[in-house]
Write a protein that binds this DNA or RNA. Structure first.
Lengths: 203, 203
DNA sequence: TCTACTATATACCGCACGGTATGGAAATGA
DNA sequence: TCATTTCCATACCGTGCGGTATATAGTAGA
């Protein structure tokens, strides 16, 4: 990963791994949101100083966007494979369980980075919100298309709108992200997923 | 409403209405969350100066708690009456529609003050989060008790756990709050409510 | 009218914020 | 070895934060 245009053989090589530093930054943004993450907390977690951070990543906003890229690539990759499930209900189950795995698994913070960083916050962070909204819109579109295919394949009951089911599923996932962030135990969230799937419409 | 121990006849009377000022502060907290709301934005919206604010309300955290009280009293009052609906599904419908009315109605900000202020944020705002969690916990308890009564009355199918349904409903509401905050149009959220109610378990 | 008391306005406090200038340390190519 | 290039560490910049000291203005009671 080429973090900057320079760093080309000549001169002193940097002493840290940009990938590791970015992963550490992601943890902080994930816990605090964009506004809540301070440069002091970021640099401490990344193990580098501020000038190193600015030289390598640009500024706070650019760092956040790169962290968002990493988040989508490493954490949200389950969505792409979930859409390949054979049935609409299978898609829903894979997405719900995948989402739960991220939000309560490993040593990562609980909750969803996108939700945390797009809610509330100061006035001068609106470009961040716009960025997140745009990414979420493209993800939503893919889900709607998948459910439209499901209806065409007779996989969704007649009266059920694909767009409505996509919006519903998104809502449950985002609600689950809030619950996870509020330290609702994992078993309860698994119960929530089972409840949701038990009510999923079928013919 | 007695905002302070003083203000007892003697001395110069204040020139603003504490209730109105608090309502204005609530708008700001509702839009920005606790951390995202600055004293400058608060005082400007309230139409008073900082010393007046501190004399009347204490400090930022105390002001927030009073705004939270007002929010519960004026905006979340629908929950209490919703719990009096005759059936579990009726409870769900009243809560969902009441929640939507708050989040997309009038000139109030979209979304839920509790969600916005409990997600993300800096490290020194944890007491705020604890406060919101505690209030949410008591609200959740009431919902669980209502659904336990529903099961006792044969109002919920046999295999359905009251606690699971309470958690599920809370999740949908909080997810809907996120969607409302992301400017999802009202008709879409009404569709979401209809979808949720259509899938509600019945015997 | 005088006194006691309280609200308002202005200016200010220490601090943390995001971001940067500068000087020295380290590694490369010649 | 030496010049060049780049990175790291420290100290600093302007700004806005939450919160306050002080002085003035205004009202009620004696």
């Amino acid at each position: 990963m080429e973090m900057t245009a320079t760093q080309g053989g000549r001169g002193r090589p940097r002493e840290f791994d940009p990938e590791e530093a970015l992963a550490a930054a992601l943890q902080v943004f994930w816990r605090r949101g964009y506004d809540g993450a301070s440069m002091a907390e970021l640099t401490e977690a990344m193990g580098i100083t501020k000038p190193s951070l600015y030289a390598c990543f640009g500024n706070k906003e650019a760092l956040f966007r790169k962290a968002l890229d990493l988040y989508e690539r490493d954490k949200l990759c389950y969505i792409k494979s979930a859409l390949e499930a054979p049935t609409a209900k299978g898609v829903a189950e894979r997405i719900l369980r995948g989402s739960l795995a991220i939000q309560t698994g490993g040593n990562d913070p609980r909750g969803c980075l996108g939700v945390i960083s797009s809610v509330g916050g100061t006035a001068h962070a609106e470009s961040i919100r716009d960025e997140i909204m745009a990414r979420r819109a493209s993800s939503d579109r893919a889900l709607v298309e998948r459910f439209e295919r499901a209806r065409a394949e007779g996989d969704l009951p007649a009266g059920v709108e694909p767009q409505a089911m996509a919006c519903y599923l998104t809502t449950v996932i985002q609600g689950m992200a809030i619950q996870a962030g509020a330290d609702v135990p994992r078993e309860r969230l698994e119960q929530l997923i089972n409840t949701t799937l038990a009510m999923w419409p079928s013919n």
